[in-house]
Simulated scan of single mutants.
Amino acid sequence: MLRTLPTDVKDAALTAMADALVERTDEVLTANAADVAAAAADGTPESVLDRLRLDAGRVAGVAAALRDLVALPDPVGDVVRGSRLPNGLQLRQVRVPLGVVGIVYEARPNVTVDAAGLCLKSGNAALLRGSASAYRTNTALVTILSETAEKAGLPAGSVELLPADRASVGELLSARGLVDVVIPRGGRRSSSASSGSRPCR
């Protein structure tokens, strides 16, 4: 399970994922070009197209962000604070993984990599629901990340992509006992789609 994996295994997986993104940049850019062309044909504003658009430099940037995570200390097991009671009993507050983290976000495909990396570093599985406009790109990114993570020793299904439709958000929010927390990220559209999100126990 992810929550019990040692730091070196998680960091090796993140490094391998970063390397794979760079090696398979053409695959990502082909999918992204199709997303950008479809969005442009739909009359999407240029400012939104720019957030959607990837190039080799931007792919290298998200890969570098994964490597930056490797350099950070592992939060799992970190003792936040503690004290000793008069009777000698020691109390400690320790950081532990949440479990399965659902994240709902819009447009920017770099969030796919950032969210997956942060979840894996902290011992959590990532269940990602991006926007329809970036679905081809996100599919390519998650395919690379999940294949590489599994080869590096992480459990299958550590990173998964949900369909980019409204129904998937409702199912995510109602998956109590399966999804431990849902995080909406982005503007009013994504937040309203995720209204009522709270930890799912």
Rank of each mutant, 00 (worst) to 15 (best):
L91D: 09
L91W: 10
L91H: 12
L91T: 13
R92G: 05
R92T: 07
R92K: 07
R92I: 04
Q93N: 14
Q93Y: 15
Q93K: 15
Q93G: 06
V94T: 13
V94M: 12
R95E: 15
R95K: 15
R95D: 13
R95Q: 15
V96N: 10
V96L: 09
P97D: 07
L98F: 07
V100P: 00
V101I: 05
V101C: 03
V101D: 07
V101M: 02
G102M: 00
G102S: 02
G102E: 02
I103Q: 06
I103W: 01
V104M: 02
Y105F: 14
Y105N: 11
Y105C: 12
E106Q: 08
E106G: 01
A107K: 09
A107E: 15
R108D: 05
R108N: 03
R108Y: 00
R108M: 00
R108Q: 03
P109V: 04
P109Q: 04
P109A: 05
N110W: 08
N110C: 14
N110A: 14
V111G: 03
V111E: 01
V111S: 02
V113F: 15
D114C: 09
A115E: 14
A115H: 11
A115R: 11
A115V: 14
A115Y: 11
A115M: 13
A116N: 08
A116Q: 10
G117E: 09
G117L: 01
C119Y: 13
C119K: 10
L120W: 06
L120T: 02
K121L: 11
S122E: 01
G123Y: 10
N124G: 06
N124Y: 07
N124V: 01
N124S: 12
A125T: 09
A125H: 03
A126W: 05
A126R: 10
A126C: 10
A126G: 12
L127M: 02
L127Y: 00
L128W: 10
L128M: 04
L128D: 13
R129A: 14
G130E: 04
G130Q: 05
S131N: 11
S131H: 06
S131G: 15
S131L: 10
A132F: 13
A132N: 15
A132R: 15
S133Y: 09
A134R: 04
A134N: 10
A134F: 09
